[in-house]
Amino acid sequence: MSAAAVIVWAAALVALAVVVRRGRPALRAAALQTGTSLRTVLPTLALALPAAGFLTVLVPDRFAAALFGAETGLAGHLLATLVGAVLPGGPFVSFPVVLALWQSGAGTAQMVTLISAWSVLAVHRLVVWEGPLLGWRFAALRLVASLPLPLASGLAAEAILALLPPGTVGR
C-alpha cells in the first residue's frame, strides 16, 4: 500500500474515533452517508474505469506527450488551462479523460493545471449555474479573479515535484 493510502486510512480511523465519541446517532449518520456515497460511486466507477482504460488505448502514445508532456513547459500549462476550462461534465467524465492523458505521457504538473482549470474556470458550470443563480456581474468578477489560479497551481506543483524524490507521484 502506498504512503498516501496509509494516510487516508489513518485519517479515516481518527474520524471514526471522533464519531464514536460523539455517540451512536452520529456514527449511524456517518455510516448511512458512507453507504449512500458507495451506492452512487461504485456503479459510476464500474463504467468510468473501463472508459479510462479504453481512452488510454485510443490516445496515441506521442499525442499526449507532445501536447502536455513534462517538457512542454509553459505552453503545455496554457493548453491544459484552455482544455480544462471547456471540458464539460462532472468529475466522472473529466477524471477518466485526465487519467487517459496522464497514462499516455502527459506531465504530472500539466495535469494538475488541467484539473484545476476544469474545477475553477468551468465554463459549463458558469453558464448553467453560476450566472443564473448569482448574477452575471458576480460570475464575471469571479472568473477574472480565478483566471491565474490553474497556471499558479500547476507551477506550484512543478516546484513541489522538484523537491520530491523522482517517482513519488507515479502514473
Binding site: 498516501a4 504530472t108 494538475v112 469571479r142 489560479l149 499558479a152 497551481s153 506543483a157 507521484v169
Partner: peptide
Amino acid sequence: FEAPLLGPEFALLRFAASLPLPVLAGALA
C-alpha cells in the same frame, strides 16, 4: 473522486499546490 481515480499522491500534490490560491483570488477580486 480525485484520490480514488488519480491516486492519493496526485490528489495531495494538487491540493498542496492549490491551497493558498483562493485567498489570492479573493484579494485580487
